[in-house]
């Protein structure tokens, strides 16, 4: 009993350290002086924390723009998912109509299409519409996805038809039924959907890299990476930017980790 338990704690403790130490080092790095980041004797705890690094980041790069852009892009996409995914999921869960199965298969087939396949034609499309380097260009390719719709359909399916029919007999309009009967029951699923969508869009890297051409339009992950390529020795500033990018998702996750764990376990969400 005793030794086995200690072995398990040792394994988990090791994994925990490997996870946490690099992240703590990122925080430490963000508070070091430039000299400390380069000194031959690696500095793990800065002598006096340089909070000014965070301010300097905003003068060296349009970091305020990055933050606003990230909030707008991830926020609008999340709202769109919360608006459309349950509606479409509801239709596939509860309505019979011509071509239903064909449309559903066509929808699920899009799950097999990785983003890199759409990357080049979307770039050409956006270039032709003049949407490169705009919010529309960053947002529209991700307004919905089959995954969210499928998740909502699975969640709505067990809601009894009688509930819907009763509302119909009472004379409720179809939109009213959706809003007042279906939507309130999907709240737990909507929470999972909203959290995942926001976090993944906040972190998205490839499309904002392809679809932006000026620093002012970049989101944080892309702005930070290109900043690092330009000023590759200013690691304290790169780390400060990383902390800014990291904190919102980390806080969101720690506060709502039950939803995340259940979401992953239930659906294998990616």
């Amino acid at each position: 009993m005793g030794t086995r338990k200690w072995l398990l704690y040792a394994l988990l403790g090791l994994a925990g350290l490997v996870t946490v130490v690099p992240l703590l080092y990122m925080l430490s790095l963000s508070l070091q002086t430039e000299a400390e980041t380069l000194s031959a004797n690696a500095v793990l705890v800065p002598e006096s924390p340089q909070w000014g690094n965070y301010a300097e980041l905003f003068t060296r790069a349009p970091f305020g723009n990055f933050i606003v852009n990230s909030l707008i892009v991830a926020g609008v996409i999340t709202l769109a998912h919360l608006l459309f995914d349950p509606l479409v999921g509801y239709v596939f869960a509860k309505f019979r109509f011509p071509l239903r199965n064909t449309l559903f298969v066509a929808l699920l087939a899009t799950l097999m299409v990785p983003f890199f396949v759409r990357m080049i034609p979307l770039y050409v499309l956006m270039a032709n519409m003049g949407w490169l380097n705009t919010y529309q260009g960053l947002i529209t390719p991700f307004l919905m996805d089959a995954f969210g719709i499928f998740l909502m359909r699975q969640f709505i399916q067990p809601i009894p038809d009688d509930l819907i029919n009763a509302a119909r007999i009472d004379g409720a309009s179809e939109l009213r039924i959706y809003r007042s009967v279906i939507l309130p029951q999907t709240r737990p699923a909507l929470a999972v959907l909203g959290l995942f969508t926001f976090v993944f869009q906040w972190n998205e890297f490839l499309w904002p890299l392809v679809a932006t051409t000026t620093a002012e339009m970049r989101t944080i992950p892309v702005g930070l990476t290109l900043f690092n390529q330009e000023y590759f020795t200013l690691w304290h500033l790169t780390a400060a930017g990383s902390v800014i990018l990291f904190v919102p998702t980390a806080v969101l996750f720690v506060c709502t980790q039950r939803y995340f764990v259940r979401g992953i376990a239930l659906t294998g969400l990616k």
Partner: peptide
């Protein structure tokens, strides 16, 4: 703790 890096951007992971 072990899930935190999964919800972290590849930009952070890569640069770090």
């Amino acid at each position: 703790l072990l899930l935190v890096p999964y919800l972290t951007s590849v930009a952070i992971v890569g640069l770090l």
